[in-house]
Write a protein that binds this DNA or RNA. Structure first.
Length: 905
RNA sequence: GGGUGAUUAGCUCAGUUGGUUAGAGCGCUACCUUGACAUGGUAGAGGUCAGAGGUUCGACUCCUCUAUCACCCACCA
């Protein structure tokens, strides 16, 4: 049994370090507070809420993108958990094939060793060791963020259960004809020396040279054909020249033989529709091994395939270029062509070129045998569920992007020439026969031999990622269901950056539908992309990427979380500078100080925490003992709750921070707490004081709860001061406040607004006329309406305290006090007699300006109401409202004029 | 070449189905260290809502075009 660690009051200054330490992730893990159990769901039958964490790379460290992403997920999960649902957040990390292998290889190279020196087995041991030592960093950092996932369920994409699922799905898809092996031109990364999928290639503009080269005709001495190319080094692998069949310039040359420069080979001139007459010279060299289009053309014309660039991006031993890098070879061959007289000209040329996402080098189209997934059959249903709204995107405009990709989908190259990853479960027997099975034993069994050699390659990392909604719940494909799957699948909300919509989101949808027959999640929330204050993408090379850990340290984790959500609107980029966190930090400080005030008043009124604890747990506001200010704040509070819950249901996450912030700053602190101080100071009835303080605490607790999903630390800390609580208890397991509509009352709100407006206006008069703050001024409030007068009478003490004036309330037909500054608000008039202080000219000018504003408004409204179209078409309530406004404005106008006349007499 | 989003105060942004005399934070100006809070309070200055048309009784809000800025997709050498 742990004891309460709290004293009744808060420390004078808010120290986020202490608070974050006290309520750290380690604390909650030991209490099991964020754990979810499938049996609890199955027994009680409540629908659980499940969030899938996009698994960060093991090599990664925390970025602001993670902060936004994971904070949002945490907000969703905490909100649902507090709304009484079993809430499961599934964490994990991704083995990140290329990235991780690159990191470890680099470390090895520093000691002068290559992975080939070690051999596959030894190398993989080193990678696992590296992962165990350094791979946990990102998870540690995420814990610092205070996120509430069920860490027991942490999954690594290469854990045995996940690997089993990978093998199972590969075998299944192979047997169903959806996975095949084929010789194709794929994207080859010469640095990582592996194939890449289309999605791993980034197109970037690049300045190159467009080289015009003259090919002599073999049988027509002195004649030639000129082509244009940006890759002259691949001339050596040319197998044809192609022209458009409709191009009159070359009609006579079709069927002729051209001589490939340097190589000296004779190649045919062929006609193919693919060739664009307008581009370059209208003649195109065909190099099937080094260009996907050429490969297709070659296929159509039964041309051979020659290869001159190797897997390392260097030229293959031919014509004296062996070992030269492709870019060096390009320069050399331009030289050689010039020497031989084949070079016509060189033009500057900017075009888009594919770069390897990881290594950042130009991708080489490379002919090789790879494994592919047939995507079209998988895409159909996956498109349909999004079109039908079975899966919803937020913001919804991403649907069109998704649709476009799905409709033009191409097969997915899934083999990688790496060692780190899931090894392809395919074995080769004699004569290259392929056996695909979940294990070597199975393969031997079906092959009827044990002389099998496993495919050397591993699978694309995303081949395990697309199973994430299944594998995180323990699915291995072997048995179709388990308790977790039954309870938690499909998951609910996926929060992810839009840049992996194709890599990941789309493929998870396909896998979920194909292997489980149901969508993997219901809602996809695409987060903002974070940029710096100048709108540039955050990147290490620009040095504009703040370290979130330093920001958390400087401003507080709650401050960072609050700020980043506040400034990140749905579907738009966000400009972030760490100084923006001052906003969140100041807000946290404000909460702390407001709570201090409330707790100090509690101590004064109740004496001790014990005394307070006797009644507070059963506290509900009693309407008959409430002041106007208290009824007003209860109305505002419930309105806030209503918009808060609505914003949640609509995924407007930045709005929820705004809604609570506005309520707390303007209504709770600026008005309600100020009135509380005044009311308590003048209250002699102890039970009324106690009721007032209990209400203040009650509202504070409500605010803490609605804020808790965003700011878990400070809300936890203050919540533990509300009552004596065990340190094992958490606000995270408390019940989210719901709207109580009977507190919302527009009339009541308006009447207290009238008091507020009089206060503001009186303060304004004081400020404008420079009444010294320590001087007590006089204020005459003239309220023609009986009920308004009652409100002012009832709240005289508040107006007096807040304005520093003595207050007199009178009927409408008063004698206008001379030498007064005056103002009209809500049909009530204010006079502040200021003999000696007031400058008549200044007041006249002020009134005239106001008069001008009001009279132009009146004119506009009269015109509007005289407009037949408006009166005939607008809804009755709108017309009613406009009439009322006009009436008020007219009455204001009269009063202003009267006041002006008094001054001018 | 297609597609998507943005353009509101000096800066960063709200403005929920069309009906407000268009709001907030930061910054700026003045006053205030009052028993929660100067990481604060009170008051104030500051905007022809990118431009041009259109729909409508009524447009920051809906439609079209233009301009500017982003991003995504696309095999033209």
């Amino acid at each position: 049994m742990q004891q309460s660690v709290m004293s009744a009051n808060l420390e004078k200054t808010y120290n986020h370090h202490d608070v974050e330490r006290r309520w750290s992730s380690a604390h909650w893990e030991s209490e099991g507070i964020f754990e979810a159990e499938s049996f609890r769901v199955l027994d009680e039958g409540r629908k659980p809420y499940t969030v899938l964490m996009p698994p960060p790379n093991v090599t990664g460290s925390l970025t602001l993108g993670h902060v936004l992403n994971h904070t949002l997920q945490d907000i969703f999960i905490r909100y649902q958990r507090m709304s009484g649902r079993e809430a499961l957040w599934l964490p994990g990390t991704d083995h990140a094939g290329i990235a991780t292998q690159t990191v470890v290889e680099k470390k090895l190279r520093e000691t002068g060793v290559s992975r080939y020196d070690l051999g596959r087995k030894e190398f993989l041991e080193r990678v696992w060791k590296w992962r165990d030592e350094y791979g946990g960093l990102i998870l540690k950092q995420l814990r610092k963020l205070g996120i509430s996932c069920d860490w027991r369920r942490n999954l690594f994409t290469m854990d045995e259960s996940a690997s089993k699922a990978v093998r199972h799905t590969f075998v299944t898809l192979y047997r169903e004809g959806l996975i095949y092996r084929g010789k194709r031109i794929i994207n080859w990364c010469p640095v990582s020396q592996t194939a890449l999928s289309d999605e791993e290639v980034i197109m970037k503009p690049r300045k190159d040279k467009l080289v015009y080269v003259r090919y002599h005709l073999a049988k027509r001495p002195g004649e030639y054909i000129t082509i244009a190319t940006v890759r002259p080094e691949t001339i050596l692998a040319d197998v044809a020249i192609a022209v458009n069949p409709d191009d009159p310039r070359y009609a006579g040359l079709i069927g002729e033989l051209a001589v490939v420069p340097v190589a000296g080979r004779h190649v045919p001139i062929i006609a193919d529709e693919y060739v664009d007459k307008e581009f370059g010279t209208g003649a195109l060299k065909i190099t099937p091994a080094h260009d996907p289009n050429d490969f297709e053309v070659a296929g159509r014309h039964n041309l051979p395939v020659l290869c001159v660039v190797g897997r390392d991006g260097k030229m293959i031993d031919e014509f004296g270029y062996a070992g030269l890098d492709r870019f060096d070879a390009r320069e050399k061959i331009i030289d050689d062509l010039e020497k031989r007289g084949n070079l016509v000209k060189v033009e500057g040329y900017e075009h888009n070129v594919g770069y390897s996402e990881r290594a950042g080098v130009v991708v080489e189209p490379y002919l090789s045998e790879q494994w592919f997934v047939k995507m079209k059959p998988l895409a159909e249903k996956a498109l349909q569920v999004v079109n039908d709204g079975e899966i919803r995107f937020h913001p919804s405009h991403w649907i069109s992007t998704y649709r476009h990709w799905m409709e033009n989908i191409r097969d997915w190259c899934i083999s990688r020439q790496l060692w780190w990853g899931h090894r392809i479960p395919a074995w080769y027997g004699e004569e290259g026969k392929i056996w695909v099975a979940e294990s070597y034993e199975d393969a031997c069994h079906i092959a009827g031999t044990d002389k099998l050699i496993q495919d050397e390659d591993v699978l694309d990392t995303w081949f395990s990622s697309w199973l994430w909604p299944l594998t995180t719940l323990g699915w291995t494909g072997q048995h179709d269901d388990n308790d977790d799957m039954r309870a938690f699948y499909p998951t609910d909300t996926l929060v992810t950056a839009p840049d992996i919509i194709f890599f990941w989101v789309a493929r998870m949808i396909m896998a979920g539908l194909y292997f489980k027959g149901d969508v993997p999640f219901r809602d996809v929330y695409f987060t903002s992309i974070i940029r710096d204050m100048k709108g540039r993408k955050l990147s290490k090379s620009l040095g504009n990427s703040p370290d979130p850990l330093k920001v958390m340290d400087a401003y507080g984790t709650d401050a960072l979380r609050f700020t980043i959500v506040y400034i990140a609107p749905l579907g738009q980029d966000v400009l972030f500078g760490e100084e923006k966190c001052e906003f969140g930090r100041n807000f946290a400080t404000k909460i702390w100080n407001a709570a201090r005030l409330v707790f100090m008043q509690r101590e004064r009124v109740f004496g001790s925490m014990d005394e307070f604890g006797k009644s507070y747990p059963r506290f509900t506001p009693e309407i008959e003992s409430l002041s106007d200010a208290q009824r007003w704040i209860l109305g505002r509070y419930n309105k806030m709750l209503a918009s808060y819950h609505k914003a949640f249901s609509q995924f407007r996450m930045n709005d929820i921070t705004r809604i609570v912030y506005d309520f707390f700053r303007s209504d709770y602190c600026d008005w309600y707490l100020e009135t509380l101080k005044i009311e308590l100071a003048g209250e002699t009835d102890r039970s009324k004081s106690r009721h007032a303080v209990s209400l203040a605490v009650h509202l504070l607790e409500g605010v803490l709860k609605v804020l808790h999903p965003v700011m878990p630390f400070i809300t936890e800390e203050i919540w533990h001061h509300i009552l004596e609580r065990q340190s094992s208890e958490s606000i995270a397991r408390s019940v989210m406040p719901q709207v109580e509509e009977h507190w919302m009352n527009d009339e009541q709100e308006a009447s207290f607004n009238a008091v507020q407006n009089v206060v503001s206006e009186a303060r304004s008069l004081r400020a404008v006329f420079g009444v010294p703050h320590d001087m007590e001024a006089r204020l005459v409030i003239s309220a023609p309406d009986e009920s308004a007068r009652e409100i002012f009478v009832a709240n005289t003490h508040i107006v007096m305290q807040m304005t520093g004036c003595t207050v007199k309330i009178s009927r409408g037909e008063l004698q206008r006090p001379p030498h007064s500054a005056s103002s009209v608000v809500d049909g009530n008039e204010l006079f502040m007699p200021l003999e000696g202080l007031i400058s008549f000219d200044k007041e006249i000018a002020r009134l005239e300006k106001e008069l001008g504003n009001v009279s132009s408004y009146v004119k506009r409204m009269e015109k509007k109401l005289a407009n037949k179209g408006f009166v005939d078409n607008a809804p009755a309530e709108v017309i009613e409202g406009e009439r009322r406004k006009l009436g008020e404005a007219k009455s204001n106008l009269e009063k202003l004029q009267a006041n002006l006349e008094v001054l001018c007499d």
